[in-house]
Write a protein that binds this DNA or RNA. Sequence first.
DNA 1: ACCACTATACGGTAGCACGAGGTAGTGGAG
DNA 2: CTCCACTACCTCGTGCTACCGTATAGTGGT
Lengths: 108, 108
Amino acid sequence: MDDLTEMLKGTLEGCVLEIIGSEETYGYAITRRLNELGFVDVIEGTVYTILLRLEKNGLVQVTKRPSGQGPPRKFYALNSAGRKELATFWAKWEYLSSRIDKLKEGGR
Amino acid sequence: MDDLTEMLKGTLEGCVLEIIGSEETYGYAITRRLNELGFVDVIEGTVYTILLRLEKNGLVQVTKRPSGQGPPRKFYALNSAGRKELATFWAKWEYLSSRIDKLKEGGR
DNA sequence: ACCACTATACGGTAGCACGAGGTAGTGGAG
DNA sequence: CTCCACTACCTCGTGCTACCGTATAGTGGT
């Protein structure tokens, strides 16, 4: 698949929120999960910048735990502000994708 | 609806391509059409930057015609490179939206 | 003469994903 | 024991994009 970076702007952060919302997890695993899901070119650096942004914006709760197979992991969980932001993200996605699909069908 | 600017990145240009592809038209009218379609906050300046970019990238054929109710209009039509780019855009959109929807359904 | 509507252009800004590189910890192969 | 692979995190800089404010210009109404 072609380069999706521009199209991912605004949506990738929402995807990370969704992943965190479904299970407390950490950066490295989130990257692997995104790759599995078809976001094949998403790289760790990108995910970490998003995670730091989420933390800075007060949307997540962070817990550091030892790993046993590498450095300690930073686990992320959504707080109430994060859950609200996630809901907003899905509302925006619904809105946008419905308009785009309408346009695609030659919507007049 | 909340601010969609980040989510529009990468997709708005494709929308403009689609509109031009369905009918030879000009900037001001494209803006009005986008507003009708639900992209309510898209403003003329944004559309003109996209149109200039399309022209610079050799995706459109431009024809200037007098208007009768204002300054002359610059009409845009897709050339073969533009049609190819439009097809690529829809392929990317299909890919992305299917992955996002899968993620939303808790896709495992 | 002024304003509203049509129509285009342009310089600057902010936000985002990404690339490249660096730091650490664990464990296995040579 | 040294090297490498894998895990795991961080950071600085870059490029692209949509957007904002502003300017210019033509037409028609009051």
